[in-house]
Amino acid sequence: MNLIQNIVLVTIILFFALLEIRSRKHEHFHATADDTRLELFMFLSLLAVSQPFIFGVTGKLCALAMPGQRDAWAHLPWWAMGAILLVADDMTQYWWHRISHTPLLWPLHRAHHTAHYMSIRITYRNNFFYYLMMPGLWASGVLIYLGFGNAYLVYIVIKLTVILGAHCAVPWDAPLYRVKWLHPLAWVLERTVSTPATHWAHHALTNEDGIGHYKGNFGNLLFVWDLIFGTAKITRRYPPKVGLHDDLAFGKERWFVEMFYPLIHSRRAHSALVPGGRAYAEADANTAQQAQAAGGKP
């Protein structure tokens, strides 16, 4: 199943990559060598290490703990399997994403926000341990043991298409907002799944422009979770800048620190990637800018 899933994943990625290349959006990324290394190695590690490891371990543990339950739920109808996966994988990922914006887990997720561009290439840009600890992957491994193998394959194709589209440098939802007769469709879609407009807002450099919402819009496949749990913001606009203030103030972290913290610590002047470090808030950036304007140091 992993082979088929990876082939489908690569096909979807190639589609969006060609879309970005044809639009020439990629020419404006100005990605550094560290950006490329982090994105490439995280993508490969997820496909070749983290996901196979999690599914392998859950399969063996389930075989030991409940040997008679292999494929026990394979008789369930497709809609029931889909509903269970949406809760066990997508809703838990919403909460995992949400708590990853708290001080405790932010170091494992900040790499996803250090890109100063939106593109499919940042979809899996995270810390190595972010995926190893993701509850939804472990729950999916159990469900696959219980007989969800084929259903998971269909589900993950749909989910990957949505999240890749939400990160894509070409905002596919823009025509829905420009064409008046498409507004009803836009209203439904933006409240159902993650779109570029809602997800780009989550990556915004600032909340002060009325578009950014980096403390919300946590949904991955379904945006419904943000509506249910009170973290949704819909503007139908796209933030002019994405990224993190601390990278602008102190320079970007090295790719291997972002990927392997806490095994490797940052040497930067201010960093969340050191023991006891904290995230650099927007208020800190404003204070630093005021100090610089007054001739002082941040």
Rank of each mutant, 00 (worst) to 15 (best):
L3V: 11
N6K: 06
I7P: 00
I12W: 01
F15Y: 10
R22Q: 12
K25H: 07
H28V: 04
A31K: 02
A33G: 12
T36L: 05
R37D: 02
E39F: 07
F41I: 15
F41A: 02
S45W: 04
V49L: 11
T58I: 09
A65H: 01
G68P: 01
A72L: 06
P77E: 05
W79A: 07
G82R: 03
L85Q: 02
D89N: 08
Q93E: 09
Q93A: 13
W96Q: 02
L105T: 06
A111E: 11
A111Q: 03
M118N: 12
T123V: 15
T123Y: 01
F128L: 15
Y130L: 02
Y131G: 11
M133A: 14
V142M: 13
F148W: 02
A151R: 05
V154F: 07
V154H: 05
I158L: 14
I158H: 03
L160N: 14
V162H: 02
V170W: 09
W172G: 02
A174M: 07
Y177A: 10
V179E: 06
L185D: 04
W187R: 04
W187M: 02
E190C: 02
T195H: 01
E208H: 14
G210K: 05
K215H: 15
F218Y: 15
I228A: 10
G230Q: 08
T231A: 11
K233G: 01
Y238N: 07
L244D: 01
L248W: 03
L248D: 10
L248A: 10
F250H: 14
F250D: 00
K252Y: 04
R254Q: 12
R254N: 11
F256M: 03
P275L: 04
P275K: 14
A279H: 09
Y280W: 12
E282Q: 14
E282Y: 12
A285H: 13
T287V: 12
A291V: 00
